[in-house]
């Protein structure tokens, strides 16, 4: 199994304040991976670093064994819904077509074939009949689906999604997860910043537990343990006590269904 994304020794700092400390991560090809961690854990920063949107202080990122710059076409990005102004004067189809702008090339306009592709992507997310809708008229779930469609037309091999389930209705959530599974069965790799711990085992194959440092990563069954979650959310104190020389994270066996102990409400609110 080869790695779709490989992150080595990644440190990102804003004004010398580390946001990510020495992260190592391998995302195997063809999996759905969740990134979970409390607010301010650096989840979004990690995704942005992989996409080259923030400059790391140290470390290296490889997409299918090569640098991001040479593999740009193979990476699709779904930013947080709240990161754009939804009152921008444009319609749904136009936003989706933006996913193709990277390959249309300079000085050229999107043509009929591009619009057909965009419409097709909209069909996949169940939004084809909203193609002409102004984007400010969309519900939160619909906005999210538009962003997903925009990523779909990129026809990438790796998708990075920043909280696609944030504030969407149940229907949209089901539609998104069905779509993610379809992508996986097409051999694509999807990395998702995720907030809802309850659904991690159901939705994802792999998980990264992140709180500035990588606390654990690997198959959900192996690393999504209560102990790891406590380390991630409960505090960084756990790490200090770790005996020197021992591996920073040991697998303590899979977590049974009792996830109630660690719920979203226990996230330290740092922001």
């Amino acid at each position: 199994m080869s790695a779709a994304v490989e992150v080595r020794d990644l440190t990102v700092a804003y004004r010398e304040r580390p946001v990510l400390w020495d992260i190592d991560l391998i995302v195997p090809e063809g999996v759905l991976m969740a990134i979970v961690g409390p607010n301010g854990a650096g989840k979004t920063t990690l995704i942005k670093a992989v996409l080259g949107l923030v400059k790391p202080a140290a470390g290296e990122i490889l997409i299918y064994g090569k640098s991001f710059a040479s593999q740009q076409r193979r990476v699709g990005y779904v930013p947080q819904r709240g990161s754009v102004d939804w009152d921008f004067p444009t319609n749904v189809l136009d936003v989706v077509t933006m996913g193709l702008y990277g390959r249309i090339g300079w000085f050229r306009r999107p043509g009929r074939a591009d619009r057909t592709k965009a419409l097709h992507a909209l069909e996949k997310v169940g939004m084809a009949d909203h193609a002409d809708r102004q984007i400010s008229q969309l519900s939160g779930g619909q906005q999210q689906r538009v962003f997903l469609a925009r990523a779909l037309v990129q026809d990438a091999d790796v998708y990075l999604m920043d909280e696609p389930f944030q504030g969407v209705d149940a229907t949209t959530e089901r539609a998104i997860i069905a779509l993610l599974r379809e992508l996986r069965s097409d051999g694509k790799t999807v990395v998702v910043v995720h907030h809802d711990l309850q659904t991690v085992p159901e939705y994802f194959d792999e998980v990264l537990l992140l709180n500035v440092r990588r606390l654990a990563s690997g198959p959900v069954g192996d690393v999504f343990t209560e102990e790891n979650l406590r380390k991630t959310y409960g505090g960084r104190v756990g790490f200090v006590g770790a005996p020197a020389g021992s591996p920073p994270i040991a697998n303590r066996g899979p977590l049974p269904e009792r996830l109630g102990g660690v719920s979203r409400s226990r996230e330290p609110s740092r922001n």
Binding site: E16, P18, D22, A57, A58, A244, S246, P248
Partner: peptide
């Protein structure tokens, strides 16, 4: 301050890096 911090930060980064991989 930034120049000073840069070296402090670099040594921190170095030690944290070594700690992460120590004994592995």
């Amino acid at each position: 301050r930034r120049t000073r911090q840069r070296w402090t930060f670099a040594t921190k980064m170095l030690t944290v890096h070594l700690l992460s991989h120590e004994g592995l």
